[in-house]
Amino acid sequence: MKIEIPQVKKRVHELRFPVRWGDMDAMGHVNNSQHFRYMETARIEWMCSIGCQPAPLGQGPVIVNAFCNFYQQLAHPDQLLLTTYVSDPGRTTFESWCTIERESQPGVVCAAGGATVIWVDAALQKASPLPDWMRAVVS
């Protein structure tokens, strides 16, 4: 399967975040599942910052897939810089991306991943077109 990488990603948010002691596993590094939590936290903080609050009974974003590539181990007490990007708006979806760096090593990506975001109508339980305001943000 060929993965299409977008030519242009729009940088939309930065978040500084500490590695917590409990994020580590028996191997002494951050457990891989935590990277998805870090990216989720960055994505949700960005969405809230643009007025896209969770709406369990209305319309809003839902993740339909997610991935992460791991390049360097992270450990407590690293301080992280998570940078969120968006790209490829479609009729009902857009792509979100995140890089994870140590603040002490700017520009060195320790992990990178992303997620496809689909806009859904919770009451109808189906995809809905991206609202114009969201399309403008992710374009």
Rank of each mutant, 00 (worst) to 15 (best):
I3A: 14
I50D: 07
D78N: 12
W133P: 02
V137D: 11
E45D: 15
A55C: 14
V108A: 00
H35G: 11
W119N: 00
I5Y: 15
Q53K: 14
T93S: 09
H29E: 10
G90I: 01
E14R: 12
V117A: 05
C68S: 05
A55L: 13
W97A: 04
Q79Y: 04
P77H: 08
S33M: 14
I44S: 13
G114I: 03
L15R: 12
V109K: 08
T84L: 07
L57C: 09
V120P: 00
P54N: 00
D78T: 08
D78K: 10
L57T: 07
D23R: 08
S128M: 04
D121G: 00
S87P: 03
R20S: 10
L81C: 14
L130S: 04
V62L: 02
E45S: 12
P56W: 05
A26D: 08
D132F: 03
D25H: 09
Q59G: 12
W133E: 01
G51V: 01
P61Y: 07
A112D: 13
V12P: 00
G90H: 05
G51C: 00
E95W: 11
L124S: 14
E45L: 12
I63K: 12
V8H: 11
R91N: 14
I100D: 02
C48T: 14
F67R: 07
V137E: 15
C68V: 11
L74N: 04
V62Q: 01
M24I: 05
T99H: 07
A66I: 15
Q105N: 11
Q72E: 11
R43Y: 03
S128A: 10
Q125V: 10
D25W: 12
P18T: 03
A112C: 13
C110L: 11
T41E: 15
G60R: 03
N65C: 15
H76L: 08
L130T: 01
G58C: 06
P77S: 08
G28E: 09
R16H: 10
E4G: 12
L74P: 02
G58K: 05
G51K: 02
W97D: 02
V137Y: 03
H13A: 14
G58N: 02
D23G: 07
R37W: 12
V30N: 06
A55W: 13
I3F: 10
V8C: 07
M39G: 07
E95P: 00
Q72W: 13
M24H: 08
E4I: 15
A75I: 05
T41S: 14
Q7H: 14
R16T: 14
R43P: 08
E14F: 08
G60I: 03
V30C: 02
M134G: 00
M39R: 10
Q59K: 15
R91I: 09
C48H: 15
S49I: 00
L74C: 03
G114L: 04
P6G: 02
T92A: 14
L80Y: 03
Y71R: 13
K2H: 15
M39L: 13
M1Q: 05
I100N: 04
V117R: 05
G28T: 06
D88C: 10
A115Q: 06
V19Y: 01
A75N: 08
P106T: 10
L57E: 14
N32D: 15
P56E: 01
V12F: 02
G22W: 10
H35M: 11
S128V: 06
Y38K: 12
C48N: 15
P6K: 03
Q105H: 12
M1A: 15
E40P: 04
W119Q: 01
R37K: 13
R20K: 07
E103F: 05
A123L: 13
E101N: 02
